[in-house]
Design a protein around this nucleic acid. Structure first.
Lengths: 203, 203
DNA sequence: AGAGTTACCGACAAAAATGTCAATAGAGCC
DNA sequence: GGCTCTATTGACATTTTTGTCGGTAACTCT
């Protein structure tokens, strides 16, 4: 019985990177920032750690690439809120999608990680997304840009907070985990409606 | 010229721990979770890394102690919102203090760190604080506990989000950094007022 | 089939981070 | 002064993590 080397899987560079990044993302989300070790990432991706290095150069390379990829995802998801169906449903929808974006796939955790790591530079993507929303659906409703911006800032912050600690918080006070999200959603909805109606008289 | 050993500073155990924790906190806040290394903590505290081990046993010990200390601070600050002066000012005050608590001294960053690290267990402190607020100032205003809880969940989440990414967000869209906070505060205030007035008819 | 390209890996090397230990030096007490 | 207690430390040891390198194997093209 000779020990024969394990059969290799050979991927395209893109597929390889993608595969590795997925493993990294999983690790980041379930083990936290400190859990992002070279060997673990490699293991999770089913490759040797040398391979990871081959594709990303260094562990920092992995971090950077991961951050960029996750931001891209997040922004994409948020922008889905932009479907201008009917104005009423949309008011509801904006909140829904926004909250989803930050809650699912660890959007909030990503954002938190970026903040904590100080990786807040490459966020041009985000700025563009915000600009798009302001000049798009918001403008349609006749909300002036200044106020629209404020609303967005608040909504995103709220989504961030809910996505990050919403579930823990709720459980902490003995409520089902979705409680925070639902409460926040209702709060946001009435708040938005009020703000849009009030439009015209200055704050 | 003989090299004489540097003069030692000898502290009480409590002072020593305190000193080390301050260094750790500083590091956590400005370098992020990954920056919490034994030697760096020691250096920042002006002691050898062996000393850190002596007092905390391990690097995990440092983390745990730090988390606990910071939570204690955070809760203490939040509870300052509880001064029941006059009802009106308090409505304003709650928001102010809450936001301060999460913004200053990296309260939000701490919470984010805890979430990311999965250190969400030892939060009995937080639960007690929340309970206190619910049965205290909220009850005084005649807000029923269920709804009060929801409001708190939302407010805290919002404070969390604002504290963590508020400034970056605002700058990202070309506004002064305090914009998010102010907008959120206003939003929260009107929302709270509305919610309290509506009290009585079910949602 | 043969040749070229390169993703992939194992083994090794280097660096970084954590932890151990015996000895030293402040501080209080007699 | 001499004694005790222990916070402190440098030097060493171990473990973890990151990075290098030469060769191998999968795939494509001719």
């Amino acid at each position: 019985m000779s020990i024969e080397p394990a059969r290799r899987v050979r991927r395209s560079p893109e597929a390889a990177r993608e595969n590795i990044l997925q493993s990294a993302e999983r690790l980041l989300l379930e083990r936290g920032p400190q859990g992002l070790k070279l060997v673990e990432v490699a293991q999770g991706a089913g490759v040797s750690h040398a391979t990871v290095l081959h594709h990303f150069g260094s562990i920092d390379g992995v971090q950077t690439a991961l951050a960029e990829a996750m931001i891209r995802q997040l922004v994409a998801r948020v922008l889905e809120a932009e479907r201008p169906d009917d104005p009423e449903a949309q008011l509801e929808g904006v909140g829904q999608v926004l909250f989803d974006a930050f809650e699912s796939a660890g959007g909030a955790r990503l954002a938190a990680w970026l903040e904590l790591t100080g990786e807040t530079r490459r966020l041009t993507l985000v700025r563009e997304a915000v600009a798009e929303v302001i000049s798009g659906p918001m403008a349609q409703k006749g909300v002036d840009p200044e106020r629209a911006t404020n609303l967005i800032l608040v909504a995103v912050s709220l989504a961030m907070g809910v996505g990050l600690i919403g579930r823990s918080l709720a459980e902490l006070v003995g409520r089902p985990p979705e409680t925070t999200r639902e409460a926040a959603l209702a709060f946001l909805k009435t708040g938005l409606a009020a703000a849009i109606k009030t439009e015209g008289r200055a704050g």
